[in-house]
Amino acid sequence: MQVLYIAHNLDDPAIWRRVAMLRRGGAVVTVAGFRRGEGPLPGAARVLGRTRNARMSQRVIAVLRARQGATLPDGRGFDAIIARNLETLALAVVIADRAGRRGGQAPRLVYEVLDIHRLMLRGDMIGRTLRALERRWCRAVDLVLVSSPAFVTQYFDTYRQTRAPVLLVENKVMAGPDEAGAQGRRLLLARGGPLVIGWFGILRCAFSLACLDAVTRAAPGRYKVMLRGQPAYDVLPDFDAVVAANPDLHFAGPYAYPDDLARIYGEVDLAWLVDRYEKGANSDWLLPNRLYESGLNVVPPICLAGTEVARMAERLEIGLRLKEATVAAASLMLAQVDGARLAALRQAQADVAPAVWRTDPEECRDLVAALGADMPGRGLRLLRAGGLTT
């Protein structure tokens, strides 16, 4: 299986996790896409241009230049083309069409959606235009990959964007049996010290930063918050100042995936999964990486009631649910967590099978098989076989 993977941001580690999953499933993967960072990439890739965070107009221009430029990959010889996000779908349909017109069989077109951008939900001309473009390009799509079922029920079916089959590929941890899991059998209790909360990953939720700052300030020494990953300074310009002014907030910088997961989750009691960055939309629908990372390492999650994360936690009977996104609700919930409560939460988390959180070889093979139009086995879940639901 020869696969062309077109990425919206080659500097995003999640891109290379998907590449690793495809290769582990037996595919030969060629990577192309746009860059937003500097320095060496984790692997070989054809760079199609540069884009910027939170600059949709600039990204549109970059895509248009790539469509017209000579750097666009030749689609001939590929069995499938995967387009990660809408901007790369605009390129993938062109590549697939050219490959078909130049002789031979056109590659299957796969649309991978891990976020629903807020512009896609607008009711004005901008939103309607973007959705119309997506519907048009989706006519050529053979398969849609999503990381959360809510993306289908809340967006694709609501706006009737595609009739293609939809496959659920969750953001599970790409780790072998010796790389993660065993550390989850350890119990880390407060032991009379502070209750340690970990907020890891892309740190971009203004409510979370303000809430954790306020909760710790209201009870000095009772809680400790460990922050790791990449702050989104375009959303949180005061991040460094807030952390520096609060002795109970500790930012320890980025971490390596998956090598550092056992260590950083081994330092915390609870994982903060609340995200209000795009409340009422993407933040309510997604199932983020930190859900699976904390799950595999047996750290109970804190999630917000009414979100897809909370619904999954409820099904698994794990974690804590924040009733509403307020400082008062967070303070009340955390005040009820003592050593005995934490031990019970840990035990409930430990009772969940590691396969819920970790990608296994069968899922990798299933994904590659689905690219070739084979129905997935029990490793991945087909949300829709084709056609719009009613």
Rank of each mutant, 00 (worst) to 15 (best):
P376W: 05
G379L: 05
Q347C: 07
D360M: 06
A329V: 15
R358I: 01
A344S: 07
D360T: 03
D366H: 12
A329D: 15
D338H: 05
G372A: 11
S331W: 05
L367H: 08
Q336N: 03
T326W: 10
A370H: 08
V352M: 14
P361H: 05
L367T: 07
D366C: 14
R365E: 09
A335K: 09
R378V: 02
R378A: 02
L342S: 01
G372W: 04
P361S: 10
A329W: 09
L383Y: 00
P361Y: 04
A355E: 12
S331C: 03
V368Q: 00
L367K: 09
D360G: 12
T326I: 08
G339Q: 13
A369K: 08
D338A: 02
D351P: 11
P354I: 12
R381W: 04
L334C: 04
Q347K: 12
W357C: 07
L380T: 10
V337Q: 02
S331P: 10
L342K: 03
A329S: 13
D338F: 03
A370R: 08
E363F: 06
A350V: 05
D351N: 12
V356Q: 14
Q336E: 07
G377T: 01
R341A: 11
V352S: 13
D338I: 08
M375C: 02
Q336K: 06
R358K: 01
A330V: 03
W357A: 05
Q347D: 06
R346Q: 05
R384L: 01
L380Q: 09
R381E: 08
A350C: 06
M375K: 11
V352W: 09
A335W: 03
R341M: 10
G377M: 00
A330G: 09
E362P: 03
A373T: 03
A335M: 04
G372V: 07
L380K: 12
G372C: 12
L383H: 00
M333V: 04
A369T: 07
A348T: 02
G339I: 05
M375S: 08
L367G: 08
M333L: 15
A344F: 02
A385K: 01
Q336R: 10
C364N: 09
G339Y: 04
A344E: 11
L342C: 02
P361M: 04
G377K: 01
R341L: 04
A370F: 02
R358A: 00
A355V: 10
G379V: 05
A330L: 13
L345Y: 06
A369R: 14
M375F: 02
R358G: 00
L382A: 00
A343S: 14
R384N: 04
A344D: 12
E363S: 12
L334P: 14
G377F: 00
D351W: 06
A329Y: 13
W357V: 03
P376K: 09
P354N: 07
V337L: 03
D351V: 02
A350M: 11
R341D: 08
L332Q: 13
Q347T: 11
V327M: 13
A335Q: 11
V356A: 12
A355R: 15
A340E: 15
L383A: 00
P376Y: 06
V356R: 15
D366Y: 09
L332S: 10
G377V: 01
Q336M: 02
A353L: 03
G372Q: 13
A329H: 15
L380H: 10
Q336D: 06
E362F: 04
